[in-house]
Design a protein around this nucleic acid. Structure first.
Length: 523
DNA sequence: GGTCTCGCTATTTTT
DNA sequence: TAGCGAGACC
């Protein structure tokens, strides 16, 4: 059955998602009308959309705010103190725009879900009745609102919880994450907390030794997985230029150890560093996924994720691919109108998915180039979804239009040969199984790679802005460093670069390597 | 004075 | 990647 429909039996039994998507689907979508300002429905306004950027820009100009306020708008949350660079008049203008256009932002998703549960017990009762079990992973990164939402469900006593987390890996303090909530919530639900995980199934014993030297545990962590005997020493290398770290050290090490590129990652504290590396790696012919890899930058092209997935269909056609296309189509439909999301397990949607895949196959056969493919695909997908009544007339127009604007975006990129870009390449962005991964350390959370390079490990970046020793800021940065190090299964290379006086090696690095650059030996 | 290019700099996430 | 300011050029 699953081979035919792309569904598997667990679909009906288990729902998997982020807390944001859980709240959106289970709380906000069915109950938005309980919020006075959303009587007519709502849409999510992503911070990556052009409309959001224009809004923030307009308010900033009108209220004469500092440039630093741009980033602060993402931190703006109802019922919380205002971020440093935003005035209350500016905040009101921002919320007035959201209300006037029936928008919710990312913070609203949690805030409104929390307040709906607070004021309408019937909603939390429904959730408690629906879910026999809730498993929360990475609990150490939950925030107050998130725990309030879980608490509302737990309060009915019908749902059982399984919570997993490691306070030593809590790195989301800036977003309201509080590691102590794990113990608090655990005792409220009278959790059995006797299970301690000490076996590390991921990393070699040398890597585990390094991790223990950054943050010792009691009882200590022990390498027990199949990589435990790997004899590759973690190493600190200093290079003149950032790119030398790749050319002269990381790429050769990967080659020598016959590690597939798809299982290797470069981690940095922020995106800008990754852009530099990404551009360089592309120029030397290394395929990458990460910042700068996609030839268009805006996430508000409705069709983008669908187009990537459908471009892949021209090569891969199996049940898994069918499912992925269906998910992307569902996301797109929800983006158009979250309050009237159709059931995507329905027969109609399955037929629509199959038709979209067939369309992509036919288009790419006639048209191997990405730009014309995109244009025709967006129009075709919009028509198909319209015919199956999965999109309204207006939404269908938006989808068709997004193919053109995505094409414009690709054309505007100077470092990409837009005319030569193929449909096949478009698919590679969605399925970078064979490409090297470029990630911020935050994004690498919960993932693992055979080989990891951590770059620009300088004081000022990690920890950020040199916090005093022993401060909470330094402690969170230490955990971030720890998270990065523990992503590696076999090979870990830690890099510093430059000879500028500003490029001081991270204090965490000099702690582990008191003799300076070289191999790490367990002491 | 208008236009262009170069170099510098920027935390981290969530549909 | 992208926005900004400084300096070059017409």
């Amino acid at each position: 059955m699953s081979a035919l429909t792309g569904r598997d039996e667990t679909d009906a039994l288990v729902e998997v998602g982020t807390i944001h998507s859980f709240c959106l689907q289970n709380i906000l979508a069915p109950n938005y009308w309980r919020c006075a300002h959303l009587a007519k429905g709502f849409r999510v306004l992503p911070t990556t959309s052009g409309e959001y950027e224009a809004l923030v820009d307009r308010i900033r100009t009108e209220h004469g705010l500092d440039r630093r306020s741009i980033a602060d708008f993402e931190r703006l949350e109802r019922g919380r103190p205002l971020p440093e660079w935003i005035t209350s008049a500016a905040a009101d203008a921002y919320w007035a725009y959201l209300a006037a256009n029936s928008y919710v932002d990312f913070n609203d998703i949690l805030y409104l879900s929390d307040s709906i549960l607070r004021t309408h017990t019937v909603v939390s009762r429904g959730l408690a009745a629906k879910y026999a079990w809730v498993l929360v992973d990475e609990f150490h990164d939950t925030s107050d609102h998130q725990v309030e939402i879980l608490r509302a469900i737990a309060g009915h006593g019908w749902t059982r919880f399984f919570i997993v987390g490691d306070p030593l890996q809590s790195i989301m303090g800036f977003a309201g994450g509080k590691p102590e909530l794990m113990a608090d919530f655990g005792s409220e639900i009278q959790a059995d907390d006797s299970i301690r995980l000490t076996g590390n199934y991921r990393s070699s014993s040398r890597l585990v030794a390094l991790a223990e030297s950054i943050q010792p545990r009691t009882p200590s962590m022990v390498a027990v997985g199949e990589t435990r005997c790997c004899e590759h020493d973690p190493v600190w290398i200093h290079t003149q230029r950032l790119t030398d770290a790749m050319d002269e050290h990381f790429l050769p090490a990967i080659k020598d150890n016959v590690t597939p590129l798809g299982k290797c990652a470069v981690l940095a504290t922020n995106f800008f560093i990754l852009y530099d590396i990404g551009r360089h790696l592309r120029s030397v012919g290394v395929p990458i996924v990460g910042p700068g890899a996609r030839p268009y930058h805006r996430a508000d092209h409705l069709i983008a994720p669908v187009a990537e997935e459908l471009a892949t269909c021209t090569v891969v056609r199996d049940a898994k691919q069918f499912r992925l296309v269906r998910y992307r189509l569902m996301d797109m439909v929800i983006n158009c109108n979250p309050t009237h999301a159709p059931r995507f397990t329905s027969f109609e949607s399955q037929v629509a998915t199959a038709r979209c895949m067939r369309l992509a196959e036919q288009l790419s056969a006639d048209q191997p180039l990405a730009l014309p493919f995109l244009l025709l695909l967006a129009r075709g997908v919009a028509t198909i979804l319209r015919e199956h009544e999965l999109l309204s007339e207006d939404s269908a127009k938006m989808v068709a239009q997004s193919g053109a604007s995505m094409g414009e975006d690709i054309r505007s990129r100077r470092d990409i040969n837009a005319q030569g870009l193929t449909t096949h390449e478009l698919g590679v962005f969605a399925h970078g199984d064979t490409s090297m991964k470029l990630l911020t350390i935050h994004r690498a959370k919960g993932r693992e790679f055979d080989a990891v390079a951590m770059v620009r490990l300088h004081d000022g970046l990690i920890p950020y802005r040199n916090p005093p020793p022993g401060s909470p800021e330094e402690a969170e940065s230490r955990r971030l460093f720890y998270v990065g190090v523990t992503r590696a299964k076999r090979i870990l290379m830690l890099f510093t670069d430059g000879d500028d006086r500003r490029n001081v090696p991270s204090r965490f690095l000099t702690e582990c390597f008191p003799n300076g650059p070289g191999a790490y030996r367990d002491r």
